[in-house]
Design a protein around this nucleic acid. Structure first.
Lengths: 156, 156
DNA sequence: GTGTGTCGGTTTGATTTCCCAACCGAACTC
DNA sequence: GAGTTCGGTTGGGAAATCAAACCGACACAC
């Protein structure tokens, strides 16, 4: 099977009648709904309170409520109290949620490269400068670099 | 601002009343709708025909039609004829579309790590084995590794 | 030239989701 | 006790999604 990337798909049954079983689809089933990844972005950026997340994302409050619930249910976020009186709790990423960092970085890098914007956008800081992420993908098995700096890399 | 990652957000105006301007949000505005990234996945995997994409993703035909249109409009995909008689054309990724590879890899890697599945899933092949992507994020400015192998890396 | 089938869609009508605005209870502030 | 903040929930209308049917252009068999 020819692909655009020196990458392809293993073993699609020839006469498939079902949609693919695929980790990408499964992941999007969890974080693919509208607002979900923006909520994760806020948690990454240290925003934990319902109202702040609502303001920074622009999500309607009821939708935000539902998204937070499903993120907690999926083990991506968890609720932690930050005040006893009045009883208040904020949302925090779990390990699984933090593991979404590369997804956010990849989305960020693509937008930064392909969607130039007039007005100043919020950015990942890094020390005294902004973070301009460079993403590299390797194969754990053989160590080959599959993608580097906006280009596919082919293996021998 | 404290974050979960030694990363944070630069310069959120203190009394923000608008949602953030952010490259992540802008990117999701283009490829964040349902089915869009699964369509890109198919194009990556060398599937170019409407009916095949429909079958492999499971998207309703009318939605697929709309998504393909907006992907073309966004410069992510383009239509190329593959037959004169009957006049047929398939969809292919542009350079901007291929640049979504890290997004797909990141989603794939997260699902692979956090959503174990009983039934066999379609995978990226790599030579004679499957590709198990290892994603590394560095800062172009200073070269520091920000993320490697499922862990955040802090700069000095 | 008359079925039958393929391909790349569009149309139709029902269902689901999204969105906005209003409301609510508990607590705290004046 | 009046007003405010916080973390939501509850309507009701608008928009997106969905499944199934339909369509036109062509191919192929007979």
């Amino acid at each position: 099977m020819q692909t655009d990337l020196a990458l392809g798909c293993i073993a699609m049954s020839p006469a498939a009648t079902q949609p693919r079983a695929c980790a990408i689809a499964d992941t999007l089933g969890i974080v693919g709904e509208r607002w979900a990844l923006l909520v994760v972005r806020e948690l990454f950026w240290g925003v934990h309170r319902f109202s702040d997340i609502q303001r920074n994302t622009g999500a309607p409050r009821d939708v935000l409520s539902a998204r937070l619930r499903s993120l907690v249910e999926a083990g991506i976020a968890e609720q932690r109290p930050y005040s006893e009186r009045p009883p208040r709790s904020g949302y925090h990423l779990t390990r699984a949620g933090r593991d979404l960092a590369p997804v956010l970085m990849a989305l960020y890098e693509w937008g930064d490269r392909h969607l130039p914007s007039d007005d100043e956008r919020d950015q990942f800081p890094h020390g005294d400068h902004r973070l301009e992420p460079v993403i590299e993908v390797r194969c754990r098995e053989c160590g080959d670099v599959v993608w580097r700096d906006g280009r596919p890399h082919r293996h021998a």
